[in-house]
Simulated assay, not measured.
Amino acid sequence: MDKITITLDGHSGCGKSTLAKLIAQELDYIYVDTGAMYRAITYYYLSNGLLQNNLFIEGWESHLDSIVLSFEKHKNYNTNVIFLNGECVEHKIRTMQVSSLVSYVSKQAIIREKLVDFQRFIGKNSGVVMDGRDIGSVVFPNAEIKFWVTASARVRAQRRYEEIINSGLSVDFEDVLQNLKDRDFEDSNRKISPLKRPEDSYLVDSSNLTIQQTLNYSMDFINSYFEKKN
């Protein structure tokens, strides 16, 4: 069976990353969390004092060449996770501080260009499941299967809230909800690669579905695609 490219796009907290991981496991494909890339870059600039008062400081662009991202195995995770300059930062990039700034960072043209090139390099041989906000529309517009994953704002906020709490951090639910709404607006209205549903994508609304139901629903569509191809 020829391997294909599968993309999942949607707003923050809709469950696309969890779903993408499971699809990749089912198909034995490479999984790529592009949101983690933008979070890792945000974390880099924060931890190096180059993001202050919610703005980049002068000269931040010159540091881009010092950032090396990779996805590698780690003993604490059952899938490949993001490494920044050789360090696993999967846990460090999930804070509210990073969440509040990642949309600002990701709308910078030079950063998007760097990461889109990296994403295309990873997926050049197909056999990849990649999730993000512009994967089906910009990174892989010719992907064989595109999913648009959605859920209500409160459902998404509850999922993100539980994710943060389970990681050992404290956070207020209303702060998480407002952060999601702010990110929705910024992601959908940025000038470069705004978040939008690809016209040829398949809708997956996970608001009232368990993760297993969402996976079954998506795999039915994928299996149907392969059956038609054969």
Rank of each mutant, 00 (worst) to 15 (best):
H63F: 14
A143E: 01
R94C: 01
D131H: 12
L69I: 14
A143F: 00
P198D: 05
F83W: 07
D2G: 09
I165F: 10
L51D: 13
R183H: 02
R156M: 00
T79S: 08
K3V: 06
N78I: 05
F221Q: 08
L51K: 07
G10K: 14
D134N: 04
A151T: 06
Q158K: 10
V102G: 06
Q119R: 13
R159L: 03
F56N: 09
Q108S: 07
L84P: 03
R112Y: 11
G59R: 15
T7Q: 02
L169A: 08
L19Y: 11
I135S: 01
L22K: 15
G35K: 15
S206K: 03
E72N: 13
I110E: 15
Q52H: 13
L19D: 05
L55T: 09
Y161V: 03
R112E: 08
E61K: 13
I57V: 00
R190A: 00
V102F: 09
L115I: 14
A153K: 10
S193A: 11
K73R: 13
D28F: 15
V138S: 04
V176I: 00
H11R: 12
I192N: 03
E113V: 08
Y202M: 13
G49L: 14
W60L: 02
V128S: 02
A24C: 12
D28N: 15
K181N: 07
S170C: 05
F173A: 06
G86W: 07
A153C: 06
S201K: 03
D65G: 06
N78D: 10
N166I: 04
G49T: 14
I165S: 06
K229Q: 13
S137P: 03
E144H: 05
W148H: 08
T210K: 00
V139Y: 01
R160L: 04
S17C: 04
A143V: 01
D28W: 14
T18N: 11
G132M: 04
M96Y: 13
E87H: 09
K21C: 05
F221V: 15
P141F: 09
L209V: 01
L46I: 15
T7F: 07
I41V: 07
Q213F: 11
Y44F: 11
E174K: 02
V204I: 09
P198F: 02
Y44Q: 14
S47N: 14
V89C: 02
Y104G: 09
S170V: 02
E163M: 04
V81S: 07
D117P: 15
V32T: 12
V116E: 13
V129G: 06
D2V: 15
F56A: 08
W60F: 02
F83H: 05
G15N: 08
Q158D: 11
K73N: 15
K114E: 01
F56G: 05
D33I: 14
E199K: 01
Y31I: 10
K124G: 03
N78T: 11
R183N: 03
G127I: 06
D182H: 00
I122G: 10
K16S: 05
L27R: 10
R197G: 02
Y217K: 12
I110K: 15
I145G: 00
W148Y: 10
I145P: 01
C88F: 01
D33N: 15
V176E: 04
S170F: 05
D205I: 09
S224I: 09
D220M: 10
D187W: 00
R159V: 06
